[in-house]
C-alpha cells in the first residue's frame, strides 16, 4: 500500500501547480490575454465567496448551538451503531446527513469538523474527501427538473442515494487505505 500512497501523494502534490501552468501556457499559446482574463475570473470567485458567507454564518451558528448544548453528543451516540456497521466514524455523521440536503450547509459542517478534529486528522481527511466526492442531491434535482416542469422523477432519487452512499463509504475506505 505504501507505493500506492506515494503515487497518490505525488499526484496530489503535482496536480495543482501543473494544472495552473498547463492551463495558462495553453491559454497564452491560443492568444488569450492570460493576466487580464485570470483577474476577471478571480473577481467572479470573490463574488461567489461573498455570496457563500451568509450561508456559512447561518449554518455555523446553528451547529454552534447544536454542538455546545451537548445535542451533538447525543446524536452521535444514537448514530454510532448504524454508522459503525458501514465503517463510518461517528464524527463524520453530521456531514453524511447534511451533504445531500444542502451544499452550503455541508460547507459549514465540514469546516466545523476541520476546526474540531483538524484537517489532517483521519476524520478531517475523510470529511474532506467526502465533501469532494459527493454532491447536493435535492437542490440539483429541484433546479433541473423544476426548469422543465417534470413531476414524475421516477428512479432519480433512489439512484442518487445509491451514488451518495457509495461515495460516503468509498471516502472512508479509500482514506483508510491511503492515509492509514
Amino acid at each position: 500500500m505504501t507505493a500506492m500512497r506515494v503515487l497518490i501523494e505525488t499526484l496530489s502534490a503535482f496536480a495543482v501547480p501543473l494544472l495552473i501552468a498547463l492551463v495558462l501556457i495553453h491559454g497564452y499559446k491560443k492568444g488569450v490575454k492570460v493576466y487580464e482574463v485570470f483577474v476577471e475570473g478571480a473577481a467572479e470567485g470573490i463574488k461567489t465567496s461573498v455570496r457563500i458567507l451568509p450561508y456559512l454564518t447561518a449554518i455555523l451558528m446553528a451547529i454552534g448551538i447544536f454542538r455546545s448544548s451537548g445535542a451533538m453528543d447525543i446524536l452521535m451516540i444514537i448514530l454510532k451503531t448504524p454508522a459503525g456497521l458501514l465503517g463510518i466514524p461517528a464524527e463524520i455523521m453530521p456531514l453524511v446527513l447534511i451533504r445531500p440536503l444542502s451544499g452550503s450547509g455541508a460547507l459549514g459542517v465540514v469546516s466545523e469538523i476541520f476546526a474540531t478534529y483538524g484537517p489532517d486528522s483521519f476524520v478531517g481527511r475523510a470529511a474532506g474527501t467526502m465533501m469532494g466526492s459527493t454532491e447536493t442531491i435535492f437542490y440539483t434535482i429541484a433546479v433541473y427538473f423544476g426548469a422543465v416542469g417534470i413531476r414524475d422523477t421516477r428512479h432519480v432519487l433512489p439512484s442518487a442515494f445509491v451514488a451518495d452512499l457509495a461515495g460516503v463509504v468509498a471516502s472512508v475506505v479509500v482514506c483508510r487505505l491511503i492515509f492509514g
Binding site: 497518490i8 501523494e9 499526484l11 496530489s12 502534490a13 496536480a15 495543482v16 484537517p119 481527511r125 474532506g128 474527501t129 467526502m130 465533501m131 469532494g132 466526492s133 459527493t134 439512484s159 442518487a160 445509491v162 451514488a163 451518495d164 452512499l165 457509495a166 461515495g167 468509498a170 471516502s171 479509500v174 482514506c175 491511503i178 492515509f179
Partner: peptide, 19 residues
C-alpha cells in the same frame, strides 16, 4: 491541503459508477 485530491478522485469515481 491538496492531499485529498487523489482520494476524492477515487471516491467520486466509485460513487459515479455506483450511480
Amino acid at each position: 491541503p491538496t492531499e485529498i485530491i487523489g482520494t476524492a478522485f477515487l471516491a467520486t469515481t466509485i460513487s459515479t459508477l455506483a450511480g
